[in-house]
Simulated assay, not measured.
Amino acid sequence: MGWDWQFYCNDTATQEAVAGCFGPGGKEQTYLQWMLSAWGWTLEVSIAALLLALVIGSLIGIIRTAPNRWLAGFGEAWTELFRNIPLLVQVFLWYYVLPEFVPALKNPAVKTALVICALGFFTSARIGEQVKAGILTLPRGQRYAGQALGMTLPQTYRYVLLPMAYRIVIPPLTSESMNIVKNSAVAFAVSIPELAQFAQQASEETSHFEEIFIPVTLLYFISAFAINRVAKFIEARVRIPGTVGAK
């Protein structure tokens, strides 16, 4: 196959080889440094979006099971809105359309946060559905028992329902956590310097398509697999006693 991996040690500006594959820093960098930097961006965007999705998704899941029909209706509307619009369209809406209505969002430093919001809100609708399913799986008697002990409804959710529901929905949450890493690739469409954007731009500059897309694919796999292993560890530690696989 005539693959040439040495280009990773070339300076991206001058195309000259750099000893040790690491340039002096700043704007001068090698393709290896560029790829590692892009991987860092992918992880940062994915983790921030995941944290946002977990917080909002949990709230949506809770209010969709609350006795207040207005709150439940809001949660239902949120889920249907963000679940039924393609992620790429949502990214474009947040990145290009929203700043036209809120000029302060045109600041370049804010643009990455907008992509994180798009990815986080999209995933929150899916997580909200899973948290809701986890809560509804529990016997009604657990809610009544908490209230019978004098707990308020928020306290019943916090101390009784949610700890059990989260244990039940860890497997689907693991899938969503892995998906958010893969879905972060849509950020290349708005020039966020993550892995997909690196792969597209670097391959055009160097014509080393195989040498670029194979490592990028492996980095996506490593990121998603690491999340899977961490989630599996957590699942084993918090599994409800008496269930299959519990220790």
Score class of each variant (00 low, 15 high):
C117E: 08
I135F: 00
Y96F: 15
V238H: 08
F22A: 14
A231T: 13
C117K: 04
M164S: 14
L149N: 08
P103G: 01
Y8W: 14
Q6Y: 09
L59R: 01
A104L: 12
G23R: 09
G25D: 10
T156G: 00
V115W: 05
F221K: 11
W78A: 06
Q142N: 00
T65L: 03
G23I: 11
A236V: 03
P241C: 05
M1T: 04
W34E: 15
Q29Y: 11
S177M: 15
N10E: 14
I168S: 02
T206S: 03
I47L: 12
F213T: 09
S58T: 15
F101D: 07
R143C: 05
L87A: 11
T217F: 06
P171C: 03
P139K: 00
S203G: 10
E80R: 07
L52C: 10
Q155A: 11
N10F: 09
Q33V: 05
E211W: 05
V186R: 06
M164G: 06
V169H: 02
A38S: 13
V131S: 01
A226S: 15
V91Y: 11
R143N: 02
S58L: 14
W94N: 08
M151G: 01
E194C: 06
G57D: 04
L173H: 04
I62F: 00
R69V: 11
I192P: 01
P193Q: 04
V230H: 09
A246K: 06
Q29H: 12
S177Y: 01
I127M: 10
R167H: 03
K247V: 13
E16L: 14
F82H: 12
I60N: 02
Q201S: 12
I192C: 07
Q201C: 04
P108M: 03
N84K: 14
P24R: 12
L138I: 00
E176Y: 15
W78L: 09
G141E: 02
R126T: 12
Y8T: 14
T14Q: 06
E16P: 01
V238C: 07
L114M: 09
L149R: 03
A13D: 15
I214P: 00
V97I: 13
N179A: 12
G2N: 11
I116M: 09
W41E: 09
S46H: 08
T12D: 10
Q155F: 03
K111P: 05
N10T: 14
P86E: 07
P67S: 01
L32K: 10
I85F: 12
A48L: 14
I180T: 06
M151E: 09
I168H: 04
T42A: 12
A145F: 00
L161E: 04
A189M: 14
G146D: 01
E194G: 01
